[in-house]
């Protein structure tokens, strides 16, 4: 599906800086299971948004029941809608050791982008998800993220992928 690729990138942008802040990045997380991973992500998301941790956890777990959000190549993008979220909010984790995530390609996951959206964010929510999937599909970006334990560096990589992707 090569059509309009450049056009789509122009419109969607390859910059995730509006979705995630530096303090939402966990550069060296340790988790033993998918469930624990989701719990840790929910914990951080709760701290940022001020919502109850349980509510966040239940929302993303509900989505996982529909089918794993592991998109392959060690990457997962759990997501969900919550009434209390003010704006689209992201949390990112880089795992020290990969955990099993029931991904399509059966590979364990070590890079996770959690995305929470307000009820009624509609198209913006889905567009944000596509952007994340697209950015994390770039092998260069992903390799660089895996190679660092610095939150600010990861944030910079997620924010500025234009140059690496254009190659």
């Amino acid at each position: 599906m090569g059509f309009g690729r450049s056009g789509r990138e122009r419109i969607l942008g390859m910059d995730l800086s509006d979705l995630i802040e530096v303090q939402a990045i966990m550069p060296a997380l340790k988790a033993n299971s998918k469930k624990q991973l989701l719990q840790l992500l929910a914990e951080r998301a709760a701290a940022i948004t001020g919502l109850p941790e349980r509510e966040v956890f239940d929302t993303i777990l509900q989505r996982e029941r529909l089918g794993s959000t592991g998109v392959g190549n060690g990457i997962a993008i759990p997501h969900g809608k919550l009434p209390g979220v003010k704006s689209i909010t992201g949390v990112f984790a880089r795992l020290e050791t990969p955990v099993e995530f029931e991904s399509l390609d059966d590979q364990p996951v070590d890079l996770v982008f959690l995305l929470l959206a307000p009820e009624g964010a509609g198209a913006d929510h889905l567009k944000a998800l596509s952007r994340i999937a697209r950015v994390l599909r770039d092998p260069d970006t992903v390799a660089k993220i895996r190679g660092t334990r610095d939150a600010a560096a990861i944030h910079a990589l997620l924010s500025d992928t234009q140059t690496s992707h254009a190659a």
């Binding site: 089918g67 959000t69 999937a133």
Partner: peptide, 13 residues
């Protein structure tokens, strides 16, 4: 990668 998009990034049961 292009094919990945062809079949959708996410899975649904």
């Amino acid at each position: 990668p292009e094919d990945a998009e062809f079949f959708g990034a996410f899975a649904v049961d």
